[in-house]
Amino acid sequence: MDKHKKNISFIAISAVIGFMIAIQFQTVKNPVERDTRDLWQLREALLQEKEMQSDLLREIRSNEEKLLAYESKQKQSKEQTLIDTIQELKIEAGMTEVQAPGITLRIEPILEKVQIGAPISNSVSPELLKRLLNELNRYDAKYVSVDDQRIINTTVIRDINNETKIDGHALSSLPIEVKVAVDKMATAEKLYNQMKVSKATEEFFIENLKLKVLEPNPEITIPGYDNPIRIRYLESIKASEGGNS
């Protein structure tokens, strides 16, 4: 038994020694290579490294310029988006002039009744005018003006000292033109046909007035609202209450 253990130990030791000799032989056979280049070759290699470094710096600078240009473009895009949004809001609020297809309604006295001595109506009542505007809204009127006064959501039509006024503008004499604009010509033609058979004509006739519906026009000009828009019940919030500081 002891002899067997001695044989195993001898074999193991021999294997380790042989492995170490093999490694030493391989190291001697393949010695570490030394840089045998002369001074000019080293300078040339250094020059190549510097050129490579310069190329990398140029590429980095180019990428930085592209990044700055992209960020500037994004900023300009945001500013343009804000400008476009403000313009859209002004259009929706009725603060800009609009040119679009539409029709013109003319309110004028009935000449036949004038000839027979009937009383002459020289103005239109606020109630009659409001009913006309409500009917136009039901027929998809988008932009409306009365006597060149833009009608918006906050427009006030009322009687002041027996005189009909629109946001302070007096409708002092006839005829009065009501201009109505829509999105497209087909809608204008539809609106024309609806107003031709509207009961509004009869309502104006009862008040000794004629409501004349003119042919559709591919370009009706609706003026912008030129009075201050009063905003009630709105308050600006502090930055700490929902905005950025």
Rank of each mutant, 00 (worst) to 15 (best):
I86A: 14
I116T: 13
A141K: 00
K179G: 05
N244R: 15
E49W: 05
Y192D: 11
K3H: 13
K184F: 06
L105A: 09
T201A: 14
N208A: 08
S236P: 14
P119W: 05
K73P: 08
E215K: 13
P101S: 10
D140Q: 01
D55G: 15
E163L: 05
Q41H: 05
R37P: 00
Q24I: 04
E163H: 12
L132P: 09
A141P: 02
V28S: 11
L68F: 13
E51D: 14
D2S: 14
M195S: 09
E92K: 01
A100N: 10
T36D: 06
D55Q: 15
S121C: 06
L128A: 07
M95N: 03
E241Q: 14
K5R: 12
N161Y: 07
S145P: 00
G242V: 05
G224D: 00
A15R: 04
I110R: 03
L47H: 06
M95A: 02
P31D: 01
E97H: 01
K238Y: 14
I157P: 00
G18H: 01
N162S: 15
N193H: 08
K90L: 02
E203V: 12
S198G: 03
K66T: 10
L129T: 08
L128Q: 08
S121G: 10
V32I: 08
S121H: 12
T221C: 03
F19I: 04
E79A: 11
V98R: 04
A15M: 03
E127Y: 14
F205T: 11
N244L: 15
I160A: 05
R131Q: 15
N161A: 15
E108N: 04
V16D: 01
G117I: 11
K75Q: 13
A170M: 05
M20D: 03
A12F: 06
I160S: 05
S245C: 12
S172W: 02
N134P: 07
R150N: 01
L174N: 03
K75S: 12
R138M: 13
P175K: 03
